[in-house]
Computed example of a mutant assay.
Amino acid sequence: MSKRAVLEVIALDAEDAVAARAGGADRLELVADMAADGLTPPVATFAAVRAAVDLPLRVMLRLADGFTAGDPAPLVAATRSLREAGADEFVLGFLDRDGGPDLAVLDLLTAELAGCRWTFHRAIDRAADRAGLRKLLADLPGLDTYLSAGSASGVAHGLPTLCAEAARHGEPGYTQRLMAGGGLTLAHVPALRAAGIDAFHIGGAARPEGWTGPVSAEAVRRWRTAVDERETPRPQEP
């Protein structure tokens, strides 16, 4: 493998962002309130992070815990405010009551994004039909990444699914990058890299003190080293 893997780190503020950059992160996911698994941050937080680092920065669009959108009007308003502040990459994903993608809300938001690149987040791990969701979203403008653990229970359970989906890369519905995240550990990295996955997302793994503590540059650096390791060819038997 010669392609550098993408390492994305969750940041809550500018201090996190600076530490993640120092450790070798390629991209940040900016959120607020990890007690609710990550919600839309204030515009002021986005502005402070944007001023602190020049890394690509994907901002969460999610106003309440769970994967249903509720009233889309506040989401649209939040999106407009962030766009006006300069945000140009995002993370979002909503399901309907049947576990399919909420196309009405996604269409509203992608219209506001006007071509900005975005990630469909781990809502895919709660979808009733993963393949069906990918098919329905295949042509949405700006969608370039799926963040997934392969299972609602995390990578430890979803590893076979992630590897199987990586093998389908390039097929209709599978042209977007697959980013592994959600209960991801360093022990999972070799198998994921061997399967062709070249993007990794970490949150708590970058915080030795837990979510009450900051991102550790050294922890990020360990992940940078791990995801950059190349496969070592097995010696041929005589």
Rank of each mutant, 00 (worst) to 15 (best):
T145F: 09
E209H: 11
Y174I: 06
A167K: 09
A199I: 07
P214Q: 00
L109M: 01
M34E: 11
V6A: 01
R207L: 08
T232V: 12
G93V: 04
A167P: 14
G66W: 07
M60E: 13
G150F: 07
D26I: 03
L136A: 15
L136M: 14
L55I: 09
E218S: 14
V215I: 00
A25Q: 02
V9E: 00
L55Q: 06
I124M: 10
G23Y: 11
L143E: 02
F90T: 01
E15K: 13
R4C: 07
A44Q: 14
R58A: 05
C163R: 10
G99M: 09
A127D: 02
A14F: 13
D37A: 08
E112T: 01
A123D: 05
D16F: 06
E29C: 05
P56R: 03
A194H: 11
V215H: 00
L136E: 15
L162R: 01
D65G: 12
G181I: 01
R207K: 05
A138T: 06
A69K: 09
D33T: 11
L28F: 06
V49G: 00
E89D: 08
R168I: 04
P172S: 06
V59S: 03
L184W: 13
M34L: 15
A127W: 05
L113M: 07
R222I: 05
H121V: 08
G210E: 09
I124G: 01
W211Q: 07
T161D: 11
T212P: 07
G66M: 04
A205S: 11
A35P: 00
K3W: 06
G70K: 09
E171C: 07
P42K: 11
V227T: 09
E229K: 12
A149G: 05
W118S: 03
A77V: 06
V189H: 05
G196T: 04
P141E: 00
S81Y: 02
A35E: 11
A152R: 15
T119P: 14
T145Y: 08
A217S: 10
R177Y: 10
V59G: 02
S2F: 14
E209S: 10
A14Y: 15
L184Y: 10
R122G: 05
A128P: 15
R221Q: 12
L136K: 14
A123R: 01
R4Q: 12
T79S: 03
T68N: 09
A219Y: 14
A51S: 15
G203Y: 04
S2M: 14
F67A: 04
A111V: 01
E15Q: 14
A5F: 12
L192R: 05
G70H: 10
F67Y: 15
G86S: 00
I202V: 04
A226E: 15
T232N: 13
G115D: 06
A25W: 08
E89K: 02
A131T: 04
W118E: 02
A226F: 09
A77W: 05
P160T: 02
R122H: 09
D26V: 02
